[in-house]
Design a binder for these strands. Structure first.
Length: 399
DNA sequence: CGTGTTTGACCTGCGC
DNA sequence: GCGCAGGTCAAACACG
């Protein structure tokens, strides 16, 4: 396993300009838990990119950000640092990178790579080789509701049902909250019950998805409009944590942005919830990222508080989902369909807060002539996807 | 005037 | 029960 990884990473070094230090590889492996396929994902992640990477070897503890205490390995950072003076939006950079990698056989597939590495039972770790200077590492935080049922990588049945489940959870959560508010108004003094409800409510909390990005800029465009509603000092960190909420009416997506105390160049953004609305229209009157997150600035963001990741529809479709049940669980929890059936894309899911993966054209294979891999194609170049899936299959065959 | 930010107060969960 | 830390609210403020 380790040899395989080492071999693959050596290949990376040879075939790309990627510069990787593997000092803490072993530690990452242990922290990345048991999913060997995930490591394979990591190992192949840079094949299509020229960005320089490093394994920083810093174990930056973001346990305060996540529910589960973790020591997050911090494998990637970009040498190509993103200056705070750089006026380019995140999506500008994406666009530039798209040109840079225009030779890709599947342009639509390029944009954003995310490689989930299972970290522990509560968190999913995402190593990303983002084609942008800021981005270095992503980390998905699963919901606390854990689906332990193993999910086949090719499973298509889980998605819709889990969508409904997630939706149900969300609705229940709202319902519980509303109920609680009523109870609090009408029945003050039922604290035990309220507490029990609170606990239940917490268990059904929205899934979160966190990104680590290397940037001097906190407020980068992701195309959505965010309103800052709070800022708090973080313990053991000189940098405050900012709280944002999607400004779209009825959309409860939140995000938290904070800077790492260990490495101030690292910005961590945690998304919570999923947008219940289409990607915002741009002033120019077309949908941002209609066919790809990188095709448009997508930024109507007057706010300066937008974060730096694309609003990727880049969630992995579960039928192409090469990841384990834990990861699927995470996806399932965040894959929410609306109650009226609008914006539902069965079999597809998206990371919370990451845009809208249900754009009609975006999900129609025939429009691009490219096989629809769901959101996966927005994350992984086709070659990587194939490698990943094959790797997963091989791993399963070995078992 | 609309929109977004700032910031102190308040609420909540959790550990001791 | 208490204190701490995280999260949220909302009034005041800034800006175009």
């Amino acid at each position: 396993m380790e040899k395989k990884i080492e071999h693959q990473q050596k290949e990376q070094l040879n075939s790309t300009n990627t510069e990787i230090k593997i000092d803490h590889q072993e530690q990452q492996i242990s922290q990345a838990s048991s999913s060997s396929s995930h490591m394979a994902n990591l190992a192949t992640s840079s094949d299509h990119h020229l960005h320089q990477l490093e394994l920083a070897g810093n174990n930056i503890n973001f346990s305060s950000i996540f529910d589960a205490p973790i020591s997050l390995p911090f494998p990637y950072s970009y040498f190509e640092d993103h200056s705070s003076n750089n006026p380019n939006s995140f999506l500008d950079l994406l666009r530039q990178d798209q040109h840079q990698f225009a030779s890709s056989s599947n342009p639509s597939s390029f944009s954003f790579d995310a490689f989930p590495l299972q970290n522990n039972n509560d968190t999913n770790l995402f190593f990303t080789d983002l084609p942008l200077p800021q981005a270095i590492t992503t980390k998905a935080e699963s919901s606390e509701v854990v689906n332990t049922a193993p999910t086949s990588p090719n499973s298509t049945s889980v998605s819709s049902s889990s969508n409904e489940a997630a939706n149900d959870n969300t609705n229940k959560e709202v319902a519980v909250k509303d109920q609680e508010e009523g109870d609090q108004k009408e029945h003050k003094g039922t604290k035990p019950q309220l507490k029990a409800k609170k606990k239940n409510q917490k268990k059904a909390r929205e899934a979160r998805f966190a990104f680590l990005t290397k940037s001097d800029i906190d407020n980068l465009d992701d195309g959505y409009r965010w309103r800052k509603y709070g800022q708090k000092a973080v313990k053991n960190s000189p940098y405050p944590r900012s709280y944002y909420r999607c400004t779209t009416v009825g959309c409860g997506v939140k995000k938290r942005v904070e800077r790492s105390s260990d490495d101030p160049s690292i910005v961590m953004t945690t998304y919570e919830g999923q947008h219940s609305h289409p990607f915002p229209m741009t002033p120019r009157g077309h949908l941002g990222m209609l066919t790809s997150p990188i095709l448009d600035h997508g930024a109507t963001t007057a706010s300066s508080s937008s974060f730096s990741i694309p609003q990727p529809r880049y969630l992995l479709t579960q039928h192409h989902q090469p990841y384990n049940s834990m990861y699927n669980t995470s996806l399932n929890m965040i894959n929410r369909s609306s109650s009226d059936g609008t914006f539902i894309n069965p079999g597809s899911s998206s990371f919370p807060g990451f845009g809208y993966d249900h754009m009609p054209q975006a999900s129609t294979p025939t429009t691009s002539g490219i096989r629809d891999h769901g959101l996966l194609q927005d994350i992984l170049p086709s070659q990587i996807r194939e490698d990943t899936i094959n790797t997963q299959i091989n791993e399963e065959d070995k078992k």
